[in-house]
Computed example of a mutant assay.
Amino acid sequence: MTDASTSDGVRDAVFSLIRVADLQGLQSITPGDFDWSVPGDRLKRLPLIEAMVTGNANRTQAELTTRAEMIRWMLKAGANPLQGCPSNEETYGIWKVNDKDKTMIRISYSRSAISFACELMGAMKKAAQEGTDWSSQIAAFQIFLEALTRGAATRNNVSVPQGVVDMWESIREMTSTHNVIFETADEEVSAHDLVLVAASPVLKAMLESTMKEGSSKRISVKDSSGSGARLFVDMLYTSSTRDDPDYKTVLVALDLAHRWQVDRIVPVLAGMLPEMLTVDSFVAIAEAAMLKGLESLQRACRTFATNNSEINAMLEKGTLPAEVRKLLGESEAPAAEQGQRKKRRIFTET
């Protein structure tokens, strides 16, 4: 009897769903023991590379986002972004229709998914310096590389048994034993001082000092929402939440984690934001990425802006904040402001 993980029918279906970017279908039919190290039959390329190179010629932002989500899911399901396929002699080719011979770029499928994406981006950037515009393709592979590298980091994390997470969640919910109160803009959020002291050197100093926070066990964060503070506390206990936070809530929790030097959850919260990028949320997320020095989030914001006409229009009009313009490679002062500098007043001795 043929094992489901190596069945030709199952493998063909998996690769077909990858090609059309049907993530829900892929999740539904892929068996738990599917072997992600075996390439497809057509061009002998690995599933992760298949996800990056197939699709419409002019892929929309929605399709790129879906393919990035697909890559992250495949990594969680067992795909290895560092695995190569040395026996494959096939190559990926990309070129401009109006000048195929001079613009042709070829990259071997024998590389790992991360190496493939890096090599292709490097070749396109080199060609761009010589006058060939590959900006949209480079932006697409930046999205894929972000998914591969962040997903690889998640994949390498130590797996915590669900029972342990459930135990810490039950401790989190023992509000009658909480002895620290966060006074937020709209509600009070509580926690155990032992958890806060262990997680944050800043909170440790506050709660163990003779300051009012130490004596009253009440910490004022009136500039923060209750939902943001709750998400911050949830992440301290279990690195998860049962709520469905929006980007504003995540930004508040991120600000608290950064402010109080809870380094272990800053990247986790920052990692939630790329999927929340929209025209409406872009400025707030991009500013946070710059002000907090979050390089991974900065890259995600630059990639989003590159593929969004509305953001580009705001950039050209000079209506974006200084930090966001800086992130996108513009000078901090809009061109209009630079051209309207006041004349210098000269004073002389009388």
Rank of each mutant, 00 (worst) to 15 (best):
M1A: 14
M1R: 11
M1K: 12
T2C: 07
T2A: 10
A4L: 15
S5N: 11
G9S: 12
V10P: 11
R11H: 08
D12E: 15
V14F: 09
S16C: 09
S16D: 14
I18Q: 06
V20M: 12
L23G: 06
Q27P: 04
S28R: 14
T30Q: 10
G32A: 13
V38A: 04
P39V: 01
G40K: 04
R42L: 14
L43N: 10
R45A: 01
R59S: 11
A62C: 02
T66V: 08
W73D: 10
M74V: 08
M74L: 09
M74T: 11
K76C: 06
A77R: 10
N80C: 14
Q83S: 04
G84F: 00
G84C: 03
T91V: 13
Y92K: 01
W95I: 06
W95V: 08
K100I: 12
Y109I: 04
S110Q: 07
S110A: 06
R111A: 08
S112K: 02
A113L: 05
F116T: 09
L120F: 05
M121P: 02
K125T: 14
K126L: 13
Q129R: 14
Q129I: 08
Q129C: 12
G131L: 08
W134N: 05
S135K: 12
A140T: 14
Q142D: 05
Q142E: 11
F144C: 00
L145G: 00
L145Y: 01
E146I: 00
A147P: 02
L148Y: 05
L148A: 07
R150I: 02
T154M: 05
N157F: 00
Q162W: 03
V164P: 02
E169I: 05
E173H: 13
M174E: 15
T177H: 11
N179L: 07
N179P: 05
N179M: 05
F182A: 00
F182M: 02
E183K: 14
E188K: 06
S190V: 10
L194Q: 14
P201A: 10
A205S: 15
A205C: 05
M206K: 10
M206E: 07
M206Q: 12
S209I: 12
G214H: 08
S216N: 11
K217W: 04
I219A: 03
I219D: 02
K222E: 07
S224T: 09
S225V: 04
G228D: 00
F232C: 03
D234I: 09
L236D: 04
T238S: 04
S239C: 11
S240P: 03
R242M: 09
D243S: 15
D244N: 12
Y247L: 03
K248N: 13
V250Q: 00
V250N: 01
A253D: 09
L273F: 02
P274V: 01
E275D: 13
M276Q: 08
V279Y: 05
D280I: 02
V283Y: 04
M290I: 12
L294F: 07
E295W: 05
S296K: 09
S296Y: 07
L297G: 03
Q298P: 01
A300L: 00
C301I: 01
C301Q: 00
F304Q: 01
A305I: 00
N308R: 02
N308G: 06
N312A: 09
A313L: 11
E323L: 07
K326W: 10
K326Q: 14
L327Y: 11
E330M: 14
E332F: 10
A333K: 11
A333G: 04
A335I: 12
Q338P: 01
Q338V: 12
K342F: 13
K342I: 11
K343E: 13
E349L: 15
